[in-house]
Design a protein around this nucleic acid. Sequence first.
DNA 1: TGACAAACATACCGACTGGTCGGTAATGTT
DNA 2: AACATTACCGACCAGTCGGTATGTTTGTCA
Lengths: 209, 209
Amino acid sequence: MSSRNASAPRPSARSKLIDAAHLLVRRQGYAATSVDQICAAAGVSKGAFFHHFASKEELGVAAAEQWTARADELIFTLPPWVRIEDPLERLLAHIDFRLFMLEGPTEGFTCFVGTMVQESFASSEALRAASDASISAYCERLAVDIEAAIARYGNHDDVSAISLAYHIQAVLQGGFIIAKARNSPKEARDSVLHLKRYIKMLFDRGEPR
Amino acid sequence: MSSRNASAPRPSARSKLIDAAHLLVRRQGYAATSVDQICAAAGVSKGAFFHHFASKEELGVAAAEQWTARADELIFTLPPWVRIEDPLERLLAHIDFRLFMLEGPTEGFTCFVGTMVQESFASSEALRAASDASISAYCERLAVDIEAAIARYGNHDDVSAISLAYHIQAVLQGGFIIAKARNSPKEARDSVLHLKRYIKMLFDRGEPR
DNA sequence: TGACAAACATACCGACTGGTCGGTAATGTT
DNA sequence: AACATTACCGACCAGTCGGTATGTTTGTCA
């Protein structure tokens, strides 16, 4: 839907620009990142930028779509634990993975679309919609596993799978902000541990180990 | 610490600039909000701006401090439920209040410092520290009530009061992002309901009503 | 080899950015 | 009345913004 042909012949300018946008926007935010900066980081001229993207906003949309694909691969396709049979164990492994990601420098684990949508939700409908699509795709994919866990184990209240998925996403996004403010992922990690405890309680299991 | 004398003689330029900054930054983000925009919204000249603040960054710091005071008043001082005797009931009333706030247009309930720190954590140590101070002040104030609730009721695991306070803050901050992306507070409200259910479970109480 | 278009580079535009500066009006203080 | 201080104004600066116009290279197919 985003690129005219499925296979990119050269991985060149376009994808390098998107990668640079991911890097810089996660570090500085969308508005504070200039087109010139993105070009310089990508090692590409400004003319090339506007050859591939009609505007900075259009790059933002493309970068959000790419972010979705990247996340789906990194979280739902490549890791070995996605093949765990039990859906609840798979869900908990997912949480552990997100916890594992909360390490190292802040720029390494924060979310491109979460950062972008915070600045642009009111000023650019295109960026807001693209960010929403990315976040919602993650949540809907996660809700499939949650639904399966509910079907097998039931849950404490009659919580909906999709609302729990959004809750997980909210804890993560909020954790990123706390980590940025605190300049440390510690509080964010503890928050994800609270989330894990909640999920276990929801499915009526005691503490692990 | 922020203003040289405790009582502001005229509520004029300085506070109007801070109010305008709160409004515009919450809507557009920090970098996307220009000094000229803030001056126009405050009905104040640019010269007056740089009379009161040495830089845009300094305004950001002052606005964060003001945000802390405003939040403390709005959440921990003025509401009648802050005088509920039982600390757990008071905590749950706090959650209900945050839920109640998640209504109306997005700009109405989002967090100034949360928005600002997301863009500035890597580029301005002063803004990051000011945002951290605001968020942490809220959490530490909240942890007092949580600590009292733990003392009276115990809790399921041996979770710490301060980590639960940061978790609450994470759910709220994350909810703001979800609400911005979804262009609706629905999923954020559901997320806070998950949070409330978790707190009840933590303190070993069944469902309400 | 030549034709032609896509992929890139260079130079540049007007609008706007954060910030400066010289000056003025009001408000104490003595 | 004289003076000092603070609050405020509006013009202005150098630099940067997103975006455009135009030129040059590169790959493809005849």
